[in-house]
């Protein structure tokens, strides 16, 4: 009997140690999701916190109840606790545990719906969003700046404090664009253009990675997002225009071939490359994606996260 008890103790101690390790290190900045630097990530973190608290409210009592019951009603000859083998109904109790989860789900559901709608569009304020077009390739990320006319591979420079409207597509298998410290991810899919807005409030370099499996080189599908002050961003654009080669159609064809590579910078890129890519990969089958023919501007993308095709 004693042996069993010590064994259980050992188990519990082990658990506790793991839990402590997790909790304690939870404060370090390596926990990217818990240390967002922009409004999107912050709202998501808020929801994460809220949901954690709500589920804890339900499951902690479950644990306590279970350990209490198992201890109280264990099968020992000297156990004096009540034994009622036919006690099997209670309207009140059942009402309670149909009721409480309904309330919890109600609260969390409401918060979820609210956040879902809140994150659809960048906030309407005076700051004009920056548009960055993102093409995921095997196994690299191409960033196109339609208004600045520069392009980069595997890193993306953005100004701080400015909402960035990422337009996402893929010219390879599906991938997912994820920069944990800025906010959640969105899929990149060939033949489709999707939108995700993010914003960095602090200057810094943020880890980004493809989050949906794309085959052999997937583990190396990493990129950086570098947030810098407005001034710095503009001077970076100027400098890039002067000191780097342009991305040509042939250059793009080469990029498209499956490979793993480092970072690259281009002073220019073929006009309409993004739309042409979407179109060539079957964009014509996504009604509502383009107002007019190839080369035209996507009128609205598939809304932020909305696709007209129903699927």
């Amino acid at each position: 009997m004693d042996r069993r008890k010590t064994r259980r103790r050992a188990g519990q101690a082990g658990l506790l140690a793991v839990a402590m390790a997790v909790l304690l290190s939870g404060c370090s900045p390596e926990y990217m999701v818990l240390h967002p630097v922009g409004p999107v990530g912050r709202q998501e973190l808020h929801l994460i916190m809220l949901s954690t608290v709500l589920v804890l409210i339900v499951i902690v009592p479950v644990f306590l109840l279970m350990f209490y019951i198992v201890w109280r009603y264990r099968d020992k000859p000297d156990n004096k606790a009540q034994y009622q083998p036919h006690w099997a109904h209670s309207k009140v109790l059942e009402f309670v545990w149909w009721g409480i989860p309904i309330v919890v789900v109600g609260i969390l559901g409401a918060a979820t719906v609210k956040t879902t709608y809140a994150l659809v569009k960048p906030p309407e304020n005076n700051v004009k969003p920056l548009t960055v077009e993102v093409v995921s390739l095997d196994w690299k990320w191409l960033f196109l700046y339609p208004d600045q006319h520069v392009a980069t591979v595997n890193y993306c420079k953005i100004p701080t404090g400015v909402p960035v409207q990422f337009e996402l597509t893929s010219d390879a298998p599906m991938n997912s664009f994820w920069v944990p410290q800025l906010g959640g991810q969105e899929y990149t899919m060939p033949g489709m253009s999707m939108r995700l807005w993010l914003q960095a409030d602090e200057a810094g370099t943020y880890y980004g990675h493809g989050a949906n499996f794309t085959g052999e080189g997937f583990a190396h599908d990493q990129f950086r997002v570098v947030a810098v002050g407005d001034e710095n961003f503009n001077s970076w654009v100027q400098q890039t225009k002067q000191s780097y080669p342009a991305l040509t159609q042939a250059g793009y064809a080469k990029l498209k071939k499956p490979s793993v590579m480092g970072e690259a910078t281009y002073s220019a890129f073929p006009k309409g490359l993004f739309n042409a890519t979407v179109w060539a990969d079957g964009g014509q089958y996504m009604p509502g994606m383009f107002k007019d023919v190839p080369g035209g501007k996507p009128d609205k993308g598939m809304s932020d996260q909305g696709m007209s095709d129903g699927m």
């Binding site: 990530g41 998501e44 929801l47 954690t52 499951i59 879902t116």
Partner: peptide
């Protein structure tokens, strides 16, 4: 109970943007 709790956390769609495929 823990699995279900984290499932419910995943179900909060905007939060899932941070958990998905992680």
């Amino acid at each position: 109970a823990i699995a279900g709790a984290t499932g419910v956390m995943l179900a909060a769609a905007p939060a899932d943007y941070q958990y998905h495929n992680s």
